[in-house]
Design a protein around this nucleic acid. Structure first.
Lengths: 243, 243
DNA sequence: CGTGACTTAAAAGTCATACTTATTTGATGG
DNA sequence: CCATCAAATAAGTATGACTTTTAAGTCACG
């Protein structure tokens, strides 16, 4: 059960070495709570357990340490740190937690984050977007309309993700831009719960078109407002699914 | 000028080992652009240059790799990745960049982030804050008032930071909560540019009191609005300093 | 008894070296 | 000109010897 299922969308370069493999074992285990905070791991234990050399164990531990998942101290061992100290923004940590038992909680946090960030990003995008980005935006919005009916959810999703990526990138803020992956994860994650048969909310589709228009028109206020409505919808959706 | 000044508030446990020391050399160097994207470092070169063993170099490189600052490939070496791929949310990367030449740019990104997140956090805080947190909030707000006049900026700053930390924590969203450190960094960073003689903007001080009141009253809308005004003020301040 | 200084041992940290594996480059041959 | 194969290169892994930090236990002294 070590071979984790095929979840990657292509941007996650599966384990390329022993240390990566170990990391992909330990990381999920820790974030899933298999090793609760306070647990002490000893390197030679890990060596034996995973049948790898010290080199490999140390490298994996070092990375976990940089994520603040564990702390390594002499004469003590490698201690799992309390949850509040984890680097919750680390994409890898996010991935691990999304794959684990507190996926719902994580999804909520991320959706709240989205609904704070994306409207602001849209407002900035209205001011900074290049003509090309505006074009991309309307194109994706139109494609969303086109694929919004009749069991075309996978195609719809692709354009939905792309749309939001462009918005974030067009904001001109590098930090917002970097949230593209996270948003993608959330959006695709949603469809795994939502039944595949139900078509997307028509109102949401319309809103995307409106956002594209607003950005093109340079109307920051409108872009922000419509985006806010989209994300509020996403929040509401969560409340319905798990109230 | 390698000994970075005493900026830590105690939560950054300076280098505890050789690998940390190496990391604290390479990280800043890369984020500062001393090794521009595309540069290839070879491990044995680093070994000699920093006079450390293979083990140490590999561990440092592994961590840099987990931050997506570099990519290590066989038969090629350790390549510095393009800026857009860096993990801009990694606290350590943020620190390095704040200490480097594109500090202004970084400060702008972070302030934009703040102004997106904090209002949302305040709204959530109005709904979720415990009585204790409300008390802390008003206390810090009052202390801000008390220290807002007459060259007491350091004391003022402490309460300012604490105030925003409580808001973020009280939001009940773990991701918002984790931004406390970042906000602290931005707030303290501001005062290094702002001249130490000028007292803080009285209007901003008042707004903090209002936010505290709104949160205590459970008025999410007001809490969000007043917080928005605070962060907008911070944005405006940036525009004035570097338009 | 309690308290402080000293000793001890456990575990991580570091180093040097030998060996393995993937990958680029380029040479060879069809 | 393209495909295939060979060699060289740099990272990856393994291992044993040694160092350093530090928790914990011990003992002497107040």
């Amino acid at each position: 059960m070590d071979e984790q299922g095929p979840e990657g969308r292509g941007q996650k370069p599966r384990a390329r070495g022993l240390h990566d493999r170990l990391l992909e074992s330990l990381g999920p285990a820790i974030t899933a709570g298999d090793y609760p905070p306070g647990t002490v791991l000893r390197t030679d234990e890990l060596e034996r357990h995973y049948d790898v050399s010290r080199t490999v164990v140390r490298e994996a531990v070092r990375v976990l340490e940089s994520m603040h998942l564990v702390e390594s101290r002499r004469r003590v061992g490698v201690t799992v740190r309390p949850t509040e100290e984890w680097d919750v923004f680390d994409p890898q940590v996010i991935r691990w937690r999304l794959a684990g038992p507190d996926r719902p909680r994580q999804l909520r946090s991320l959706t709240a984050l989205r609904s704070a960030i994306e409207p602001a990003a849209a407002a900035l995008a209205a001011e900074h977007a290049t003509p090309e980005q505006c074009a991309e935006l309307t194109e994706h919005a139109l494609n969303m309309v086109a694929t919004s009916r009749g069991q075309q959810l996978p195609a719809y999703l692709i354009h939905d993700v792309a749309f939001h990526r462009v918005i974030l990138r067009a904001s001109g803020n590098e930090m917002f831009a970097r949230l593209g992956d996270v948003v993608a994860e959330v959006l695709t994650g949603r469809t795994q719960h939502r039944v595949m048969f139900s078509d997307p909310d028509p109102e949401a589709v319309t809103l995307h078109v409106r956002v594209a228009e607003a950005v093109r028109a340079g109307d920051a206020e409108a872009a922000e407002r419509y985006t806010k409505e989209i994300t509020v919808g996403a929040l509401r959706e969560l409340d319905i699914l798990a109230p």
